[in-house]
Simulated assay, not measured.
Amino acid sequence: MLENRQFDNSDIQSVMLDDENSTLIILDQTLLPNEKIFLRLTNQNQIWEAIYSLRVRGAPAIGIAAAYGAYLGIKESKAESYEQLYEDLKKVKEYLASSRPTAVNLFWALDRMETRFKAEEGKTVDEIKNALKDEADTIRIEDEMVCKSIGENALSLLESGMGILTHCNAGAIATAKYGTALAPIYLGKERGYEFKVYADETRPLLQGARLTAWELNEAGIDVTLICDNMASIVMKEGRIQAVLVGCDRVAANGDTANKIGTSGVAILAKHYRIPFYVCAPLSTIDLKCSTGEDIHIELRSNEEVTSKWYEKPMAPEGVEVYNPCFDVTDNILITAIVTEKGIAYPPYTKSLAELF
């Protein structure tokens, strides 16, 4: 069973390691905003389920959870040799990688853990295990630094007083700290900027309503929740001067996979001549993926649309449902892609490659 405990709003950290008890601790984002509960995950099945069920979500946070999951997966291994331990790692990696197909950080983090494992060849089993813990810790620490750098770069594109539209949740609880698309909003608040944020509710899982609105409201930031189909009117009324979104994967040509509905927001922003910025750590940029057509889009259960958030089903029983988790925003709709290493502008095939 998972053990629960309340947590303090003053220090939001969504993924943590309790190494002494061989436990991964995550903030259960499916319960927000009504319950603020940490879950203690003690085996691979629980970690897999937490990633699949979006208890831990946001590309960077998924990567951190996967890295710690890989470490915990081999920590208790009885292997006595490098070769035996490597076989255990490969099984753990393959299992955790099957939890979500779209977010590239999941695979990036697991590959990085395997690379570190191989670099430790010749050392004792215990030394290798310690090295993997160190690598997972480094992934978490680096993500905090990356998010702050993204925030600094994105803030250079904004001015105090702007109205900003967000979609889904790319905030502190989706990363190690600060967030990606919300990082400039947090940094701006620290420096006296006054932003007016409009948060799309983000159907069908309501990450904007449950998570972004909660997170910004807790931080004392001016935030207004709107339904997804209200994005056009707030743009037309002149309330929005910039759109900030995160992403789960960026193709080499700048096509970007993000939460379903992002592409529609980008089309609206293009129509109203509002800059549309994607905030993306380099770890989400997949130069091996040529275009958005190569990105596998995850399909999720019918219940998320028909009944999950209702006391009674709100659709006819047995009706066919199409529920893709992500859509792809074409690069022509994206004003700039903001990374920790700088801001990429079209043509993205060139500018993204140069960041590496």
Results as ranks from 00 to 15, higher is better:
residue 339 T to L: 04
residue 124 T to S: 15
residue 86 Y to R: 15
residue 293 E to Y: 12
residue 240 I to C: 06
residue 81 S to W: 06
residue 164 I to G: 01
residue 3 E to W: 06
residue 153 N to R: 14
residue 155 L to C: 02
residue 120 E to W: 04
residue 229 N to P: 04
residue 270 K to W: 13
residue 149 S to W: 04
residue 341 K to A: 10
residue 342 G to N: 11
residue 57 R to D: 08
residue 167 H to G: 09
residue 321 V to C: 11
residue 110 L to W: 06
residue 20 E to M: 08
residue 280 A to E: 05
residue 74 I to R: 08
residue 80 E to S: 10
residue 328 V to T: 06
residue 69 G to M: 11
residue 256 T to L: 04
residue 354 E to G: 01
residue 210 R to F: 04
residue 337 I to P: 00
residue 100 R to T: 02
residue 26 I to H: 05
residue 159 E to G: 03
residue 250 V to R: 07
residue 333 L to P: 06
residue 323 N to C: 10
residue 90 K to M: 14
residue 121 E to M: 06
residue 191 R to A: 10
residue 93 K to Y: 06
residue 35 E to T: 10
residue 258 N to Y: 13
residue 55 R to M: 03
residue 52 Y to M: 05
residue 189 K to R: 13
residue 52 Y to Q: 14
residue 202 T to L: 02
residue 151 G to F: 12
residue 86 Y to S: 11
residue 1 M to R: 09
residue 35 E to Q: 15
residue 231 A to F: 01
residue 333 L to N: 11
residue 196 K to R: 09
residue 328 V to Y: 04
residue 102 T to Q: 07
residue 120 E to L: 14
residue 281 P to R: 02
residue 257 A to W: 10
residue 5 R to H: 15
residue 285 I to A: 11
residue 118 K to Y: 12
residue 119 A to H: 09
residue 21 N to C: 02
residue 35 E to F: 13
residue 38 F to I: 12
residue 223 V to S: 01
residue 343 I to P: 03
residue 168 C to V: 12
residue 184 P to C: 12
residue 177 K to R: 15
residue 178 Y to L: 10
residue 233 I to D: 07
residue 90 K to D: 13
residue 337 I to N: 03
residue 256 T to E: 02
residue 75 K to N: 13
residue 53 S to W: 00
residue 50 A to G: 09
residue 106 L to G: 00
residue 225 L to F: 04
residue 94 E to Y: 07
residue 356 F to W: 14
residue 278 V to C: 04
residue 58 G to E: 03
residue 72 L to E: 10
residue 73 G to H: 11
residue 344 A to S: 07
residue 140 R to L: 14
residue 187 L to E: 10
residue 58 G to C: 08
residue 297 I to L: 12
residue 209 A to F: 08
residue 110 L to C: 03
residue 130 N to P: 00
residue 204 P to F: 13
residue 314 M to I: 13
residue 238 G to M: 10
residue 310 Y to G: 05
residue 173 I to V: 05
residue 138 T to I: 06
residue 337 I to A: 01
residue 330 D to H: 14
residue 298 E to L: 02
residue 218 E to N: 14
residue 133 K to I: 05
residue 259 K to W: 07
residue 18 D to S: 09
residue 290 S to N: 09
residue 252 A to Y: 06
residue 65 A to R: 03
residue 319 V to E: 10
residue 239 R to P: 00
residue 89 L to K: 08
residue 202 T to H: 09
residue 149 S to Q: 15
residue 275 P to T: 06
residue 219 A to Q: 07
residue 36 K to W: 10
residue 120 E to M: 15
